[in-house]
Design a protein around this nucleic acid. Structure first.
Length: 456
DNA sequence: TCATTTTTCGT
DNA sequence: CGAAAAATG
């Protein structure tokens, strides 16, 4: 009797799951396995918000498998050791998994392939599971990856995607392969109070509601901070409770400018993935260095703390940083503004900001997070590396009535209209009555001055 | 068909 | 300014 193992990683779903389908199609028994990878804990990636969301996802995945006659096997430890252990217990002939792009994922896949080969077991790695268009599918002449988004997007749009797969009807799991108890979000300390719920069911519900309604006005409203008109599907894409291939198909089927703009954002995700796949060190090192001599963490300690805690004295920055802490999520426009403020205005190393985002974001993803931070810092793929986003101009444009600021900065909730973006310009008595800090820095003192002071 | 130069264009 | 495409030889 043929037996297979399907190793779930960042693909915690039953719909449109090629490794699962291949495993079920090629054998009578299949072990659905998830490993709580000790290396991920050690690297500091197992933060409370994502651990809680992950726990939701695993419980939902287990529930979905049980509806189909199966169950999820969870183990903790070294991923390669645990997979080999389960392969031996189940006497499996093959292992299926999804490919992924980070340095960690690439090393993990290689180690696993070698260990399984030594045991005479074949590892099947499926692409187009964690991304829609796999890295390397389209390339410019003379390079293994695109460094500019627009030409990438043209080629990406021409790729014909495979059809989305249905969820399997039945899953037969061999007897005698034990599982640890499933983790629960209730045991996780330090969660953001407004954290989203994980799981494939939840993701599909959100996707359906998104495509039935708000996506239609996504193009006009996606940058409006107070409108909060983005999909909020990012954590589901990060954990793979939703399939990017299915998302692109369904958005294209909906048609129109909103869905097209949404698909474009999904292409950005693949763009960053193909950069990281080709240059895995871009997660920690400058993709294209500008020889910045950032202020050290020690030198900028007070500024960094003010930024993290949302008390920089720039209302839109503080609003966004407080949303991050409260929800484990931040509006995309807020991410751009707060990142630009840290790297361009406070002139702090992008890695400091990227790490803080990864510490809190429920969708915290190495490719998206690190390469977007690099884009803002001017060390990444931005073709205009000196771009600086002015928090006041941007606030007036993307939070014209100030509603986003008043929602997240209660000290300012009594200030009407867009005046909320510049509390220092209020009449002195009104200003004094607010328990809100003065700006930590004069905007004109930012990047140019820091760079000059450092002789570059 | 290929290498090199020129033009275009960039969340 | 530099990457990617187009034009050129």
């Amino acid at each position: 009797m043929r037996t297979s193992v399907v190793l779930f990683t960042s693909d915690l779903r039953l719909h449109d799951h090629p490794p699962l389908r291949a495993a079920l199609g090629g054998s009578e028994r299949t072990v659905p396995l998830f490993v709580r990878d000790r290396a991920v804990d050690r690297a500091g990636f197992a933060v409370p918000n994502r651990l809680a969301f992950l726990a939701d996802c695993l419980r939902d995945l287990d529930a979905g498998l049980r509806e189909r006659g199966g169950r999820l096997v969870v183990r903790a430890g070294d991923l390669v050791d645990r997979v080999c252990e389960v392969v031996a217990e189940a006497d499996a002939d093959e292992v299926h998994m999804a490919s992924d792009v980070s340095a960690h994922a690439q090393r993990r896949e290689e180690r696993l392939r070698r260990a399984l080969e030594a045991a005479g077991v074949r590892l099947h790695v499926h692409d187009t599971v964690t991304g829609a268009v796999a890295p390397g599918t389209v390339t410019p002449a003379g390079s293994d990856h695109f460094a500019v988004f627009t030409p990438y997007f043209r080629r990406w749009s021409d790729v014909s995607l495979r059809d989305a797969l249905a969820a399997p009807r039945t899953v037969r799991v061999p007897d005698g392969v034990g599982s640890e108890p499933l983790p629960s979000r209730y045991g996780v300390p330090g969660l953001s109070a407004g954290l989203a719920t994980g799981g494939e069911q939840e993701g599909r519900k959100r996707l359906g509601a998104w495509l039935r309604g708000p996506v239609a006005v996504y193009e006009e409203r996606h940058d409006d901070l107070a409108g909060d008109a983005t999909s909020r599907l990012s954590p589901h894409l990060h954990f793979g409770t939703l399939s990017p291939v299915e998302l692109v198909h369904r958005a294209r089927r909906a048609g129109g400018p909103g869905p097209e703009a949404f698909v474009r954002q999904l292409a950005w995700r693949d763009f960053h993935r193909q950069v990281l796949a080709a240059r895995p060190d871009a997660g920690t090192a400058d993709y294209r260095t500008r020889h910045d001599r950032w202020r050290s963490e020690r030198e900028a300690r007070e500024d960094i703390a003010a930024w993290k805690e949302g008390r920089t004295g720039y209302p839109v920055i503080d609003a966004a940083m407080r949303q991050l802490r409260h929800e484990g999520w931040m509006h995309n426009r807020g991410r751009l503004l707060t990142a630009s403020f840290l790297v361009k205005t406070l002139y702090v190393d992008w890695r400091v900001g990227a790490r803080h985002f990864l510490d809190l974001l429920v969708d915290g993803d190495v490719a998206n997070n690190q390469l977007n931070w690099q884009w803002v810092a001017g060390t990444g793929t931005d073709t205009r590396p000196n771009r600086v986003l002015n928090p006041i101009t941007q606030a007036r444009r993307f939070d014209p009535d100030g509603g986003y600021v008043r929602r997240w900065v209660p000290e300012l909730e009594g200030v009407q209209g867009r005046a909320v973006h510049e509390p220092w310009r209020l009449p002195a008595d009104e200003r004094a009555a607010l328990d809100y800090p003065d700006p930590v820095i004069d905007l004109s003192a930012g990047l140019a001055r820091f760079r000059q002071a450092r002789g570059r």
